[in-house]
Computed example of a mutant assay.
Amino acid sequence: MRCSYFDAGVCRSCHWLGQAYDDQLARKQERVSQALAAVAPLRWEEPVRSPDEGFRNKAKMVVAGTVEEPTLGILDHAGRGVDLLACGLHAPGLQAALPALRRFVTRAGLTPYSVPERRGELKHVIATESTDGELMVRWVLRSTEAVGRIRKHLPSLREELPVAVASVNLQPEHKAILEGPEEIFLTEREALTMRVNGIDLHLRPHSFFQTNTEVAAALYRHARDLVDAASPTTVWDLYCGVGGFGLHVASPARSVTGVESSKAAVEAAAASAASLGIGGTTWLAGDATSYAFEAGAGKAPDLVVVNPPRRGIGPTLAGWLEASGVGHVVYSSCNVDTLARDLAAMPSLRPVSARLLDMFPNTPHHEVLVLLER
């Protein structure tokens, strides 16, 4: 991918953009292989490639500048806005939508927040594109002062763009935090439908979903194949999010329990299961580690899927898995270092196979899926 922002030195978020994609992939494979080699020998599957541009389904744009001339992009070292409307990472629908979203800032009279001066209202615009081309657009504001103007002008924006879900998020603090806990919906719909491998996942504003839809689909398919080969009758999907893994591995002869700290996410997973007619699934809001100790005090499941944040599952949950009777674990990780630490804490669960999935081209970031067998 060629990027004028990178060439001009105004944005260096894609650290590896100057490297050929094949070289990037080989470098990541070497990195993750070396990190896990010390834990146990295992078989590496062929890595999953990604397009090196146009793959991001989500645009998280810092808003700066003025009402008349807003910028959507990032901030420089002085806190001034750097406009990145033409960023080549975004999916085509997002690239087409961003100029209209910038014009909307002016039309609705939304004052961009100035970090150096600590004043203004609009901090971020967050847009997500579904596989059907629909959009979820969120305006992150410091207060409700501009909500009325956004409501007034939203119909004109929806004439330009396929906005299915629109909301205002309130984040009043002067901190490097993307969003706050309060969401004000401006549309009847509150969730964006993301169809992955024929399964409709319902994304609400605070729900986590992989930003690379194509590679996420491959991740879920590979996990499903691993689970089907193990033939468990009971599965736990810990850190289940909106149910991507759990819904893919569900079957009539298998019970699946998903656990996630976000109540909105598990409600979305339950809605997906109901709309698809998938029985035998349970979705619970709570802490994954606490659930394992409480529910696993009786009979442990046959297989556990874990998809934790970068910090990994940690020693407590790893210790429970090690001592449990769980026969298989499918571990999806975006941080090979915490993955290696967690695997070392579960010596009775032997890594059998692993696969690199290039969720984040042009950067050193990675996703790895590992199958463990007792």
Results as ranks from 00 to 15, higher is better:
residue 334 C to S: 07
residue 73 G to F: 11
residue 79 G to L: 10
residue 105 V to W: 11
residue 140 V to Y: 07
residue 48 V to D: 12
residue 348 S to D: 03
residue 238 L to R: 03
residue 342 D to F: 05
residue 305 V to E: 02
residue 208 F to L: 00
residue 7 D to R: 04
residue 152 K to I: 04
residue 335 N to I: 07
residue 119 R to F: 10
residue 140 V to A: 01
residue 369 L to H: 05
residue 126 I to Q: 03
residue 211 T to G: 06
residue 147 V to P: 14
residue 354 A to E: 11
residue 207 S to C: 09
residue 141 L to P: 11
residue 247 L to V: 05
residue 369 L to E: 11
residue 261 S to W: 04
residue 24 Q to T: 08
residue 116 P to T: 05
residue 313 I to A: 02
residue 1 M to G: 15
residue 9 G to E: 02
residue 149 R to K: 10
residue 155 P to L: 12
residue 330 V to M: 07
residue 155 P to K: 07
residue 72 L to F: 05
residue 107 R to V: 12
residue 195 R to C: 06
residue 265 A to D: 00
residue 157 L to K: 03
residue 266 V to P: 01
residue 158 R to E: 03
residue 289 T to N: 01
residue 281 T to D: 04
residue 267 E to C: 04
residue 60 K to A: 01
residue 279 G to T: 11
residue 207 S to G: 11
residue 340 A to H: 06
residue 281 T to G: 02
residue 226 L to W: 03
residue 98 L to S: 11
residue 222 H to I: 14
residue 92 P to G: 09
residue 279 G to Y: 09
residue 182 E to R: 00
residue 173 E to A: 10
residue 33 S to T: 08
residue 352 V to R: 08
residue 224 R to K: 12
residue 181 P to C: 08
residue 276 L to H: 01
residue 278 I to C: 01
residue 74 I to Q: 12
residue 326 V to S: 11
residue 39 V to D: 14
residue 145 E to L: 15
residue 287 D to V: 05
